[in-house]
Simulated scan of single mutants.
Amino acid sequence: MDKLRSLEIFIATCDGGSFAAAARLCGSDPSTVSKAIGRLEAQLGLTLFQRSTRQLRITSAGERYAGTVRKMMRELSGCEEELKQINRSPSGTLRINSAVCYGHLYLRPLLRAFCLRYPDIRLELEINDLHVDIIDNDIDVALRTGYVKDSRLVARRLSPMDFLVCASPRYLEEFGTPRRREDFHSHAWIGFRIKETQQLQPIFLPDESGEYLPYDLERRYLTDDGEAMAYMCADGLGFAQLPHFLAKEGLDSGALVSLYPYFRPPDPGSGVFAIYPKRDFLPAKVRVFIDFLNDALAARGESANHTWAENWAPLVPRV
């Protein structure tokens, strides 16, 4: 029996928890599975499973070996898929996981054009703000605002995340326009509560020199939904500091105005990222999706280091 087949049986045994279950997964029989595992252990000089009459338990050496084997098999599968797709159109199921607001406002309007261009790609779209394990959940690409460093993943920045202090024209007509950040104490503010941590998103306002610094303000209204925050702001409930992708629709329509020039967090981990598993051969379906997304963002003035917010004329150009 060749080594690759032995490794496939080994992984099936890990997943199934018994020789009988592995035999069903591999279309074989328990005796063949047991012999294959025995030969593999003899080659390695290691015990991969502890056997008893009641159960089969993987050893610590077996767990370490399984991790390496799984990685190798993923890379092999990715290489084979890449080579198969060199001379044909991208195809297969593309599983995308996106942050809620970005998915609704930026991604969803692009999907029809993408599907028309690549009819052999089937989309599975998940919209949530949970930081799911991309590899364990078989996600091809995730769109996230920020990322957690993980050596198994590639995080490719699509754009910075620029923030704008926004209000509705109706609110400003009724309550006036603040000129200094101290003036905001007499105005209503809409705050954002981060679901996973339950912490409030900090507010950054420019000081007399124009430098943005965190500023402590009472939030009269709170929400954990970004779109709701933008709509509450457009409805005239008060001020909100909105990411550029949340502010764009309201600013374009005139439902919102931006008070100051944009604020960009200095943290290099801040921004909008396409995150996908690290591999030698990026599947064609993932590559064309990211290229398509970059082209669509470029059409609206966004790239890895720029957004349209840089050129947006604020109501109060200088503090």
Score class of each variant (00 low, 15 high):
L256F: 02
N311D: 11
R264Y: 00
N128R: 06
Y106V: 09
I135G: 02
G78L: 01
R54Y: 10
E126F: 06
M232P: 02
L200R: 10
D150A: 12
L110N: 13
C79L: 14
P206S: 12
F49S: 04
L213R: 15
Q55R: 15
S77G: 15
L158R: 07
C79P: 00
T223W: 11
I86R: 09
L123P: 00
Y276H: 13
F192Y: 15
A23V: 13
Y221A: 00
K248P: 15
Y260Q: 10
D162H: 15
R39P: 08
G78E: 02
R156Y: 06
R70W: 12
L297W: 07
S270F: 09
S159I: 01
D216L: 03
G92Q: 06
P265T: 14
S91Q: 09
N128F: 02
P277N: 09
P109E: 10
A230Y: 10
L125D: 01
Q43W: 02
G176Q: 11
G16F: 12
R181I: 09
C79Q: 12
P109K: 01
P265R: 15
G191E: 01
L46E: 14
T68L: 14
T177R: 01
L172I: 06
R193L: 06
R157V: 06
P214N: 00
M161S: 10
C79Y: 09
A230L: 13
A230I: 14
Q50S: 15
R180A: 05
G210F: 02
P261W: 05
G146L: 07
F289W: 07
L256D: 09
W312D: 02
H104A: 13
E81D: 13
V272W: 05
D216P: 04
S89V: 06
Y231A: 14
R180V: 09
F292R: 05
A188E: 14
G16V: 12
R279N: 10
Y276G: 04
Q50G: 09
L94M: 11
R180E: 07
G78K: 03
R24D: 00
L116V: 08
R170F: 02
I194F: 11
I121Q: 01
F204W: 14
Y65S: 08
Y102W: 14
T223Q: 04
D267Y: 11
A274K: 12
I96E: 09
A296H: 10
R117N: 04
S18K: 13
L76P: 07
A36H: 04
K35C: 06
T307H: 05
L125T: 00
F204Y: 15
R181Y: 12
R318S: 05
A36I: 02
V33Q: 03
M72H: 11
F10K: 07
R318N: 02
R108F: 12
R108T: 13
L256C: 07
R300D: 08
P261A: 10
A61Y: 00
A284E: 04
A12C: 06
R54L: 03
L251R: 12
V33S: 04
R24I: 01
G45Q: 06
G78M: 01
R70D: 09
L76A: 14
P283L: 15
S60E: 12
V100P: 12
V69C: 14
T68K: 10
V141D: 06
S31G: 08
F192D: 00
R156K: 13
I275G: 03
R5V: 03
L130D: 15
E211G: 07
C115D: 03
L4I: 15
D129Y: 09
L105H: 02
R279H: 13
G271N: 05
P277E: 12
P265W: 07
L7C: 10
L205Y: 03
